[in-house]
């Protein structure tokens, strides 16, 4: 399969990429690892006229420490996240998550910025950015702004990034006690259900992906939490009408899996 024709431009800076996005509007699309966009273009689900390759922009693939935060460049590959000592020690939940994305080849190429921007309802990172209260930093023609993870995902393949904006970094607070539990779709390795839990003091933060069209914070679980996993029974409270269904898991099975995986993550 060969995608429809397009022009290809390699951007050398964030401002050049923003200028091109501003100039070409919805005819243009950013290209990072290409592991969501290229398959979609082959299937004609996406037909951009211009691809702006941002993968070579220097400074967009660093992983650094800033006080109590870890700042991850949008172009960091899943493999770079798996292999980062800093992430393995101070944000282990993210390393755990990156390790269960796709396969070696996908992890070598796909990026965290691309995954968040794509907002696949079965993607893994959304659960973790939600549970960690990460911030997504975007830059556009009017400057830069920070979007809280809880305000970032708007629906299936939909986020609050504006057309002229590009994700530059993702800022995570350091997390001492967190884990990610995933029920794999056996062919694609995407999450049928993925649950991230971060424990802080006597409280807990729970992010859920794969279950509803929009990844969500399971606030009912958080409110009911009293130190054990009983609160898992509240896993789908508030999203009962938005449950996804496909030939791998209908709504009843997904709802069941959500509870089982919240329980697992609370007990881990």
């Amino acid at each position: 399969m060969i995608p429809a024709k397009f022009d290809y431009i390699k951007a050398s800076s964030v401002s050049e990429a923003i200028g091109l996005l501003d100039k070409h509007g919805d005819e243009a699309k950013l290209l990072s690892g290409g592991h969501s966009l290229i398959p979609a273009m082959k299937l004609r689900l996406s037909r951009p006229e211009i691809l702006i390759d941002i993968s070579g922009i220097s400074g967009m693939n660093s992983i650094t420490e800033d006080g109590n935060e870890i700042v991850i460049g949008a172009n960091c590959t899943h493999a770079a996240i798996c292999n980062s000592d800093l992430i393995n020690s101070d944000l282990n939940i993210l390393a755990q998550t990156a390790k269960c994305i796709g396969d070696i080849q996908v992890r070598n190429r796909g990026t965290i910025g691309g995954s968040l921007a794509h907002a696949d309802p079965a993607a893994d990172y959304p659960a973790v950015v939600l549970a960690c209260d990460a911030n997504i930093v975007v830059e556009g023609k009017n400057g830069s702004r920070t979007i809280a993870a809880t305000d970032f995902f708007l629906g299936i393949f939909t986020t609050s990034i504006a057309e002229d904006e590009i994700i530059t970094t993702i800022r995570f607070p350091k997390v001492a006690n967190g884990n990610y539990q995933k029920f794999f779709q056996s062919a694609s390795r995407f999450a049928v259900v993925g649950v991230a839990v971060v424990k802080e003091g006597s409280g807990v933060k729970v992010g859920v992906t794969g279950v509803a069209g929009t990844p969500y914070r399971a606030t009912a679980v958080e409110n009911a939490y009293s130190g054990n996993s009983d609160a898992a029974s509240h896993a789908i409270e508030g999203v009962e009408d938005e449950l996804m269904s496909d030939h791998f898991a209908d709504t009843t099975y997904r709802a069941h899996l959500a509870k089982v995986y919240v329980k697992k993550a609370l007990e881990a």
Binding site: K10, L31, G34, H35, I38, P39, I104, N108, R109
Partner: peptide, 15 residues
């Protein structure tokens, strides 16, 4: 690609 296993069907030659 630069030492890392990659699926060449999902990569443009220009990349």
């Amino acid at each position: 690609v630069d030492g890392a296993a990659t699926k060449a069907c999902t990569l443009l030659a220009v990349q």
